[in-house]
Each structure stands twice: as structure tokens, then as C-alpha cells.
Simulated assay, not measured.
Amino acid sequence: MLAIRNRVCTAIAMFCLVVLGACSATYQNHGYAPSDEELAELVVGVDTRATVDDVVGPPSASGMLSDGNYYYVRSRVRHFGMYRPQVVERQVLAISFDQNDAIANIERFGLQDGNVVPLSRRVTDSSVVSNGFLRQLLGNIGNLDPSQLFN
């Protein structure tokens, strides 16, 4: 009787440990933004685009044109159980250049600096928004034009 009681207590304790372990938050890091120590090697007005490529590396996103500014983006996302993932930290480092490809400005932005802006938003409009396959199939039944049958 005592052995069964010990096994039940052990099973309950193991179950509680598994439940508590499953409730811990997990974090995912995305992207790369250079540290302040790496940026200290760059001099505004002196260093060029090639120097930035050598010191901190090429960015994951750049401006619209080939001569555009450099944008380094880093974010940290918290996943907790069944809840929606939440961005807990985001840094955007913007390095802008003048017409001679020299560094004009270095700025760092975070979540506290303003609204969250989606960097890439690809939306394709479709005429099949809320129609499923069966609805499309049955919707064509009434679209029969008898005049086209005799042509």
C-alpha cells in the first residue's frame, strides 16, 4: 500500500514539473544590428560605404536604389504557451550616406521611439477572398447562358 502511494506521489510530482516546464517562455532572435563598439570604428563624414561593408558587414536591407541607405534590423520575439508571439525588443540601425558615398548620419531606433512599422508587406488582392472550392463550384451552376449553347 505504501509503495503504491509513493508511486502516485512521484507521478503527480513529475506531472507538475512537466506542466511548469511547459509554461516557460521561449525567445527567438532575428536579424543583426552592429554593437556600439563596432560603430565606434566608423567616423561620420570620413568613412565610406565600402568601409561600412568591411567593418560591420553588408546589411540585410538597404534603400530602394543601389545607392540607398543601409538598414540593420534586429528583433527579439517572446513565445509563451498558447498566446500570440510578442515582439519585446526591436532595433533598427540606419546608416545614411551623402552623394559622395561618405557616411552622413548613424541613427538607432527602437520600439520605444514610435509605432511598429512593417518592413515588408506583400499583399496580393484576390477575387477569391471568402469563397471556398465548393462555393465556387456551386456558384457556376446558375451562370449558364443558353444563347452561348447554340453558337
Rank of each mutant, 00 (worst) to 15 (best):
A3N: 13
N69L: 04
V46Q: 06
D53K: 00
I141F: 12
P85G: 10
M14P: 01
P85L: 13
D54H: 04
L111S: 05
N143Y: 12
M82S: 13
N140G: 08
L2I: 09
E89W: 02
Q136A: 02
V88Y: 04
I4A: 13
E41Y: 01
C16Q: 07
E89V: 06
N115A: 11
P58N: 00
Q112R: 13
N105M: 10
G142D: 10
E107C: 09
P146R: 07
S130F: 07
V87A: 11
G81I: 08
C16A: 14
R84Y: 15
A102V: 05
S60R: 14
C23A: 04
G31Y: 12
F150A: 09
S60A: 11
A13C: 10
T51C: 08
E107V: 12
N131W: 15
V88M: 00
Y27C: 01
V73M: 06
G63W: 02
G81F: 15
S24D: 05
V46Y: 08
S147F: 11
V128I: 11
L93I: 15
A104M: 04
G31F: 11
D47M: 11
R49A: 02
D47N: 15
F80E: 14
N115L: 03
R7S: 13
Q28L: 05
Q99M: 08
N140R: 06
D125W: 15
L93V: 15
D145L: 02
N115V: 02
V19S: 01
V87Q: 12
V19M: 07
S96N: 10
F133T: 07
S35E: 12
A25I: 02
L137Q: 08
